[in-house]
Design a protein around this nucleic acid. Structure first.
Lengths: 260, 260
DNA sequence: CGGTAGGTTGAACATCCTCAAACCCTGTGG
DNA sequence: CCACAGGGTTTGAGGATGTTCAACCTACCG
């Protein structure tokens, strides 16, 4: 169910990282080369902890499978803070990592590659201006999606929340070419959906059925089909966050420098 | 109600910025001097928009009063994404600003000072290593508090949410000396509390009464008194987020450089 | 003294949760 | 081939939690 061997879920490599960053800023050939050669592949099974947030976070990129940043409460309740999708970074940033007692857990089998090379490139603005800009924009986008999560949990109904969440995942996967306009792989259990949307499993189940009955989605076999993305977007007041690099007051070299 | 003229709310200046950053990293004298002389004071009344997020965000520090980052939905619902308290930055960062359609609005009369001088200092790691580290840690803390907000909205009950939110505000104000152990200024309306906690005004009102009846807080006249902070923390599973700068792989100068 | 913003209250209702059970699919072992 | 186990999904019933609407109260302010 978690993506057969020929599913898009399992057949990507560092090129998803490249695809994502390239869309955020036009990369130089040597930046692309750097990204394309990320290695030290690691495979982790479902439920593997990719990072304990207390220890220093390793700089890695998720290249296949889905993961989630999770916060546990003392009594066993848990909240998915954000999803981590192929192409997303884990700790590839010089900003100190906050993550109040969060853990990153694999929701499917995952593959990661080492991102130290990128981290090193960030120290060299002369040669990696564009890459640095892309990495910074990626971080800003991550933050924007966290804001979406707050709005979702705070002010949307169950029905709207799930519509909104599905659209977020679709938009993010489309950036790396892993979702098409009307179809995307969907390896999440209803329990994961519940923990992300702040609902109970049972209510997630019933709400999904409602979405199905309303002919908005089909959901089975690890795939979602979006029957009417625009209608979903209207229901959830979904607006894809955009980021733009801030206009600089200084010279170009400083800009790249700045973006971290 | 929003803080009489002798309330702590109205009598701070750039020193709250200094107090906050100093607590995050040991500053050099010339950094402290730089912060102490921030000027271009601006006063804004309640409900003033301090930033439209679409336009370029000005780099400023809030030095007195409270503000909030707010997201409006098409049908008039609104969600407070985060509170902005004295000492907090508005756009003092080189990371591009994401803020999916958010607005920063003054919840009380506020005073801000220009932060361009800090922004410029960020370009000069040689002389402002410590300041740069502090600014980066402040940004990381902001992010950590956003995670708290997600957990609050996603998995806490109304009762727990308000306890948790009050403790967050207390912890943040204590960093700048604006709250004591058991008492803090509290200029929020129940409407603002509702928009922050994802509840209705009516239910906020009733839940606060419950907290009062349980002898956990007193709340009147723009002040909260915490009768038993530890009990509140236990109820809400409140854990104050900590950030630490990431151990560096390179030399010290690079570290400061990195933290952005 | 009237207007307004914020706080409080009651009653009816909607949303969402819990508990418990059944069902379905898939993989495993006899 | 079948029985079984286990994870995930689905269903029903009852109840807790939170919302809505409408009214009223209070303090403050011109």
């Amino acid at each position: 169910m978690l993506g057969s061997s020929r599913s898009p879920l399992t057949r990507n490599g560092p090129e998803v990282v490249l695809a994502r960053l390239r869309r955020l800023a036009p990369l130089k050939p040597h930046d692309e080369a750097l990204l394309a050669t990320l290695k030290d592949w690691r495979h982790d099974p479902v439920n593997a902890e990719l990072t304990h947030d207390l220890s220093s976070t390793p700089a890695r990129y998720l290249v296949s499978g889905w993961a989630a940043r999770i916060r546990w409460l003392a009594d066993g309740r848990r909240q998915i803070v954000s999803f981590i999708l192929p192409g997303d970074a884990l700790g590839v940033s010089r900003r100190p990592q906050p993550r109040s007692q969060c853990t990153v857990v694999a929701l499917t089998p995952v593959q990661t590659v080492d991102g130290q090379a990128v981290l090193r490139a960030l120290d060299d603005p002369e040669h990696h201006e564009a890459l640095i800009a892309a990495v910074a924009l990626a971080a800003a986008l991550d933050e924007a999606w966290m804001i979406e999560q707050i709005v979702r949990l705070g002010r949307l109904t169950a029905y709207e929340r799930l519509a909104h969440l599905l659209l977020e995942l679709r938009a993010r996967l489309m950036m790396t070419g892993l979702s098409s306009f009307s179809q995307m792989p969907f390896p999440l259990t209803q329990e994961a959906l519940a923990d992300a949307s702040g609902l109970s499993i049972v209510h997630v189940n019933r709400t999904i059925q409602q979405l199905r009955r309303d002919n908005l989605i089909e959901l089975r076999g690890g795939q979602v089909r979006f029957l009417d993305p625009q209608a979903l977007a209207d229901i959830a007041d979904f607006r894809e966050p955009k980021v733009a690099s801030q206009p600089s007051t200084t010279d170009t070299r400083q800009v790249a420098f700045n973006l971290l």
